[in-house]
C-alpha cells in the first residue's frame, strides 16, 4: 500500500447567495496516493473547481474533513502554517490573470523561494534551474507576462508552483484556455516533472479525452456530488453510472479506435440544473435515461461495486460488495 497524501472526507462547501444556498460541494470524499494523479471531471457548475479551492483553503470549508499527510487541515489559507503552504500548491485555469502583470518572470518564480527562505545564497541559479526543468529559455527571467504567449505563461505558473518543492499540486483546468499543440506540451511537462519530483496531482478538467491520458484514477462530479470513482482504464472501458455513459458518448472523437471504445450512443438531453435548486433524490434523475421511480425520492449512497470502483446510483444498489 502506497502512502496516502490527501484524504477528503465528506467535504461540504455551500455559498449563500441572494437566490438561495448554492450547494457547490456536497459531501465529497476521496483520497490521493503519493505519486498519483486523481482526476475530477464534470460539466461547468459541477463544483470540481470549488473542491480544489476548498482543499487549498482559498474558501474555508463549510463542513467535512481534509487530511494532508495524515494531518487534519482546518480553516482557510491564512490560518494554515507556512510549512503546509510550501507543501501544497496550485495552478490556475487562466494563465493570463495568474501572473502579476507588473512583475518580471524572475520575480514571480523567486517569490516562493523568498517566502520559504529556500536557496538563500543562490536564488538566481535556482530560478534558472526551474526554468530549465519546465523547458523555458533562461532569458525569460527579465521578461514580463504580457510579452509571453498563453502556453508560456502557464509554464511560468507551473514553475512558480514547483519552486517551493511541494509534494502536492492542484491543477485547475490548466490547459482549457490553450490550443491542442500547446496543451500537449504542458501536459507532457506536467507528467515529466511529476516523475522527477515525485508529485501528486489533483487534476481538474472537463475534457474526458485529456483525463484518459493523464489521470490514474478519475472521479465524476455532478451538481456538487461525486457520482463515480474508478481507476482510469476501467472507468473508460466499463463506465457504470448513466451520467458517465452519457458524457463518454458525447465526446467528439477523431479515430475509429476511439469510436469503438464509446458505449452505445446515449443521446444527451437536458442541461445541468442550477446548483441552487438541486433536484430531490438522485440529482441526475431528470436527465437520466434509466431513471426509475425511486430515483426521484431516495438519494443513493456511494457503493463499491467492484474493487476500487465506486458508484452512486440506484441501479447498482444490490451489487454492493
Amino acid at each position: 500500500m502506497s502512502e496516502e497524501i490527501l484524504r477528503v472526507k465528506d467535504l461540504i462547501k455551500f455559498f449563500k447567495t441572494t437566490q438561495g444556498v448554492v450547494r457547490a460541494v456536497d459531501r465529497v470524499s476521496f483520497s490521493i496516493q503519493k505519486g498519483e494523479t486523481f482526476g475530477l471531471v464534470g460539466e461547468s457548475g459541477s463544483g470540481k473547481s470549488t473542491t480544489a479551492f476548498t482543499i487549498m483553503g482559498v474558501y474555508p470549508p463549510t463542513g467535512g474533513e481534509i487530511f494532508f499527510k495524515g494531518v487534519k487541515l482546518t480553516g482557510g489559507v491564512k490560518s494554515r502554517p507556512l510549512s503546509l503552504k510550501k507543501d501544497m500548491q496550485m495552478v490556475f485555469q487562466d494563465p493570463g490573470s495568474s501572473l502579476n502583470p507588473r512583475h518580471s518572470i524572475g520575480q514571480i518564480i523567486e517569490l516562493p523561494l523568498k517566502v520559504h527562505k529556500l536557496y538563500e545564497n543562490n536564488r538566481k541559479e535556482r530560478v534558472e534551474e526551474i526554468l530549465k526543468m519546465v523547458g523555458l529559455p533562461l532569458d525569460f527571467t527579465r521578461r514580463y507576462p504580457r510579452q509571453l504567449g498563453g502556453g508560456e505563461k502557464q509554464l511560468v505558473a507551473i514553475s512558480r508552483a514547483i519552486a517551493s518543492e511541494p509534494s502536492f499540486i492542484a491543477l485547475d483546468e490548466p490547459t482549457s484556455a490553450l490550443d491542442v499543440s500547446m496543451q500537449a506540451k504542458i501536459i507532457n511537462t506536467l507528467l515529466r516533472i511529476q516523475k522527477e519530483l515525485d508529485l501528486s496531482y489533483l487534476f481538474i478538467t472537463h475534457n474526458l479525452s485529456l483525463m484518459r491520458n493523464v489521470a490514474t484514477r478519475v472521479g465524476i462530479m455532478y451538481l456538487g456530488k461525486l457520482l463515480e470513482v474508478a481507476p482510469t482504464s476501467e472507468f473508460f472501458i466499463k463506465p457504470l453510472h448513466p451520467y458517465t455513459k452519457m458524457l463518454i458518448s458525447s465526446i467528439p472523437v477523431i479515430t475509429k479506435e476511439e469510436e469503438k471504445l464509446k458505449p452505445e450512443r446515449i443521446i444527451s438531453r437536458g442541461e445541468i440544473p442550477s446548483p441552487v435548486n438541486v433536484p430531490p433524490g438522485c440529482a441526475f434523475h431528470p436527465r437520466c435515461v434509466e431513471c426509475q421511480e425511486m430515483c426521484s425520492k431516495t438519494e443513493p449512497e456511494m457503493i463499491e461495486v467492484e474493487e476500487n470502483h465506486y458508484v452512486r446510483c440506484n441501479l447498482y444498489i444490490d451489487q454492493s460488495k
Binding site: 499543440s181 500537449a184 501536459i187 507532457n188 491520458n213 482504464s233 477523431i254 475509429k256 479506435e257
Partner: peptide
C-alpha cells in the same frame, strides 16, 4: 484517416485520445 500535410497529421496526433497512451508532442515551436 489519411491526413497528408505534415501540419494536419501532427495536429491529429496532439489531440488526446480516448484510448489513452499519452499525448505526443508533435508540433515544435509556435
Amino acid at each position: 484517416s489519411d491526413p497528408l500535410h505534415p501540419y494536419t497529421s501532427n495536429l491529429f496526433k496532439t489531440v488526446p485520445k480516448l484510448t489513452g497512451g499519452g499525448i505526443p508532442e508533435a508540433i515544435k515551436g509556435r
